[in-house]
């Protein structure tokens, strides 16, 4: 999956949990939660969505690693690599 496609899926999940946000305004280095106003409840729904869409199992201690779009895309790529191995 290309970065662009990953990003599109991430945006779909964001719109699903927070229908009134516009993820298109996000820059790659922006803090997703701060910029879009995602609270801990929405964030948990976001993680659930990511796990479902990408087949991951994101542990709680990794939440701090996926604060920006750039970090999240890298994280998903690495996690999928691990899954293949």
């Amino acid at each position: 999956m290309k970065d662009k496609e990953t990003k599109a899926v991430i945006f779909q999940i964001l719109i699903k949990i927070a229908p009134d946000v516009d993820p298109e305004t996000l820059e790659m280095e922006d803090n997703i939660r701060e910029v879009l106003g995602i609270d801990s409840f929405d964030f948990l729904q976001f993680i659930i969505g990511l796990d479902e869409e990408f087949g991951l199992k994101t542990p709680e201690e990794d939440y701090g690693k996926i604060t920006t779009l750039k970090a999240l895309i890298t994280y998903i790529k690495a996690a999928k690599q691990r899954l293949i191995k």
Binding site: S40, F41, L44, I47, I48, D51, K57, P59, E60
Partner: peptide, 17 residues
């Protein structure tokens, strides 16, 4: 909370609230 969430599926995780 950390201990219990480790055992839980992401869907069943609890928030501190």
């Amino acid at each position: 909370l950390k201990k219990t969430n480790k055992k839980r599926d992401v869907k069943d995780r609890l928030l501190s609230v």
